[in-house]
Design a protein around this nucleic acid. Structure first.
Lengths: 171, 171
DNA sequence: CGCGAATGTATACACTGCGCACATTAGGAA
DNA sequence: TTCCTAATGTGCGCAGTGTATACATTCGCG
């Protein structure tokens, strides 16, 4: 059958990127995430993604490493530990779906470790490095899950870092 | 049709409790969690649970509040902040499915708040209370997600609390 | 031009959560 | 005792999911 001129071409051009973009869109919009929904949003058949990603996990893993890259960029742009903590939490709150996905995948632990290293760059003692990461991550997760309600999360982060981390670093 | 004598009775007796138990078993065994699997494990038809729980969320919410109860018991039995932190993390590592479920439900925030209060009982300053909870929870989550590998988690918790929380509390 | 490889589509299966109608049973009323 | 009603469990069906398999279309190279 001949394609009508107005129809889009059989071959998409750059489906892998389009799929990633569509998946990100689903996460940002908080819509239920399914491979079929991703394909739908990319305007492609339900099985087309399988040409580029082995399975759903593979797409999610790609999303996770992308997310860790974005987070690392943000962290590296911060000057002090307090700023990094604030960026970390604000990233989580701005992209809840992506953030949860990043830390939920057993894959992409290397990317997570790199993120941790950037954070640790502002701290000296090893126990403090882990403690700082854990506290900031804990704040992010608790806020994300609604276990810690607060009108001004950024302020909360700064106060908590000042009360806990700063004395420990000085100590 | 007449029931054969060896078959179990039509009415279960205490299905709600049996369903909770079956669900817990699924979580502990790390098997994929589905309402049908819960019903299967309880030896009952796929739709029987709907007589006792409005939907899947309701069952999960019941599980979550149960889990928070168990965690609170453990925390209250601990004498010092360090012990509580260790209990918190060890609970998470011992019951990963249940722990993730507890903090993943938007419901049962009251139970989570109660847990936080128990933890806060060992700390005075408000910012420190939140910081302590966040750090301990962060350690639990990072360990659970495999982002923080460590041969002896309990030791890690004690060291981190000693390095970060104790100095901050001392002021 | 022609053919093979890459890419997208169609169809199909097992599984899920869940609504609806029906079967079975328990427990009180006559 | 017998019967009736409400509680409880079952069967069937629907929409939606991940994914395997077979097919159609198109691009790029000879």
């Amino acid at each position: 059958m001949c394609a009508v001129s107005t129809s889009r071409p059989y071959h998409h051009g750059d489906l892998p990127a389009a799929l990633l973009h569509a998946a990100l869109g689903l996460l940002e919009d908080g819509e239920p995430f399914s491979l079929r929904a991703v394909a739908r949003r990319a305007g492609v058949s339900p099985n087309a993604p399988y040409r580029h990603y082995a399975d759903k996990e593979a797409l999610l893993a790609a999303l996770a490493t992308y997310g860790f890259g974005r987070l690392a960029d943000r962290l590296e742009a911060a000057a002090e530990l307090t700023d990094m903590a604030e960026e970390y939490v604000s990233f989580a709150l701005a992209h809840p779906g992506l953030f949860r996905l990043m830390y939920g995948r057993p894959t992409a632990n290397a990317a997570a470790a790199r993120t941790a290293e950037i954070l640790a760059g502002r701290v000296t003692a090893p126990a403090l490095q882990i403690g700082a990461w854990a506290m900031v991550h804990g704040l992010a997760v608790l806020l994300l899950d609604g276990k810690l309600t607060c009108p001004d999360p950024a302020q909360l982060v700064r106060a908590t870092v000042a009360a806990v981390l700063t004395p420990a670093v000085r100590g």
